[in-house]
């Protein structure tokens, strides 16, 4: 399961939509203890291929702060 972090909720929602169109089940999340650099604290959580997802987000000019494997 991966978590992709965003500094803007608009980009988080755009990413969610793009990845749902890729066939992933995506959940939007707000970090309970965001660090100073985590912006709005919004993230999306999904199970799937992070590399494919990131390429698609980049192609669509979605701005994310980073991603991590969470489980």
């Amino acid at each position: 399961m991966y978590k992709i972090k965003f500094s803007s909720v608009t980009h988080a929602l755009k990413a969610k939509e793009i990845m749902e169109n890729m066939g992933y089940r995506v959940k939007i999340n707000k970090n309970s203890n965001p660090s100073k650099n985590e912006g709005c604290g919004y993230s999306i959580i999904f199970v799937g291929d992070i590399n494919r997802a990131i390429v698609r987000l980049d192609m669509n000019k979605v701005k994310y702060l980073g991603y991590e494997l969470i489980k």
Binding site: S7, S8, V9, T10, G39, C40, K63
Partner: peptide, 16 residues
């Protein structure tokens, strides 16, 4: 903007 709140400057990201 609800984003990058620790930063004293306005964020660069659109639409924020």
């Amino acid at each position: 903007t609800g984003s990058s709140s620790v930063n004293k400057l306005q964020p660069d990201i659109l639409p924020d």
